[in-house]
Design a protein around this nucleic acid. Sequence first.
DNA 1: AACCTACCGTGTACGGCGTACACTTGTCAA
DNA 2: TTGACAAGTGTACGCCGTACACGGTAGGTT
Lengths: 235, 235
Amino acid sequence: MAERMETEPGTEATARVPLSRERILRTAVELADRDGVESLSMRKLALEFGVVPMALYRHVANKEELLDGMLDVVVGEIDPPSTDEDWKTAVRDRILSARRALLRHPWASRVMETRTEPTPIVMAYMDSMIGMFRVGGFTIDLTHHAMHAMGSRLMGFSQELFNDNSDTPPEMEAEMYTAMADMYPSIYELYLAVSHDDASVVGPGCDDQFEFEFALDLMLEGLERHKDRVRKEEP
Amino acid sequence: MAERMETEPGTEATARVPLSRERILRTAVELADRDGVESLSMRKLALEFGVVPMALYRHVANKEELLDGMLDVVVGEIDPPSTDEDWKTAVRDRILSARRALLRHPWASRVMETRTEPTPIVMAYMDSMIGMFRVGGFTIDLTHHAMHAMGSRLMGFSQELFNDNSDTPPEMEAEMYTAMADMYPSIYELYLAVSHDDASVVGPGCDDQFEFEFALDLMLEGLERHKDRVRKEEP
DNA sequence: AACCTACCGTGTACGGCGTACACTTGTCAA
DNA sequence: TTGACAAGTGTACGCCGTACACGGTAGGTT
């Protein structure tokens, strides 16, 4: 229905917009954004096109390949590296761009975890990231360590370690925490500190973006020190 | 069959070892270790006990709760914090213990990603980790940032960023990389450096353990500097 | 005009999954 | 003896991914 184009107004003759790998991937991403990747099935996706499930298999080999393709769409949204900045801000900006892409598609990081082989597009992303360290003056060894060290941050996310998506209302959450004070004293103490420190954050809770950048800068500064150390040792 | 106990030799009278939440969780962990968590199903798990699938539901509410319980088993294998060391080595040791637990059960980190709410056991782990920073002299704010910064490392793993579990033999892998040299020059350069640097590593490839500790120490040193900086500012 | 050939979507079917719900069976206290 | 309760059973439902044989349609060749 939604996928028909009237060739002439008032005519019964209609033509489907033909399926294509691109269209399938884009729609799958939208569906996952809207309803969550868990509920994405080949059958529902086909329904979205008004088409029988097996029709999709002309364009993607199977569901795994569909997921790979969806990740490619997301990775494709990451900005290319800037060329007129020092390595540190260039890497920083790019990683924050990756993070933005993955926040737009919250399922993506979880799906990324399940992949065993990178697609060419992901490979290209890694490659250019390695290149950024290299032109920044990193030795190949330090670049290697840096890539490992950045770990998940390279893909623009780090565990939010239980993203606070609970469906409990805030006032009840406070109650819950005070009830836990005996059992988990340190968590409680941290909760108190964070929830009373409303100055820097809008409302109680923590500023994920700040935390992400804190960790990122910790790593970047550490890497910079390593780099300079190596420089001094081989004058 | 395997789950029967002969009460008397030669007698047909046999008694099942009764099901229990503990036994179910342990067996599920073994099954996931052996065949991968993807292929773990309630039906196969029941089969392992020679029991009908629905029997399991007397002991675990549903599959989600089963997975939660399995993670609890894994987290239960993490050593408790040592009390007679400085914070840095204590935190370091504990995280490496967590990493060992998660390497023993490679499915665990992936499943952890899919959880939305922590179990009490995971909460307790977090709590005691927070406590380690606190007794180490961290302010509550810095502790907060530290917990976020350690991110996945707190759970003992960081992305291995495409664990090299490919089923291609090593000699073909070399070929593959050289074929990719034009497309991904930086990856190729890195590959060359790593595969020729056999001195520190047994065989070509990279020493994941070394990389993990490199990143870990980068973070710990960065955190230490932050801590000392705060100290000096408020004498 | 007749026919061949590719391609692309269809229809049917299979085996596997999680789990709801009603049932039997075994155990033990009253 | 009975009756309650817990533990395991059997059946069934609605999902899922996808193998496989089929039909229709457009374009090129004869």
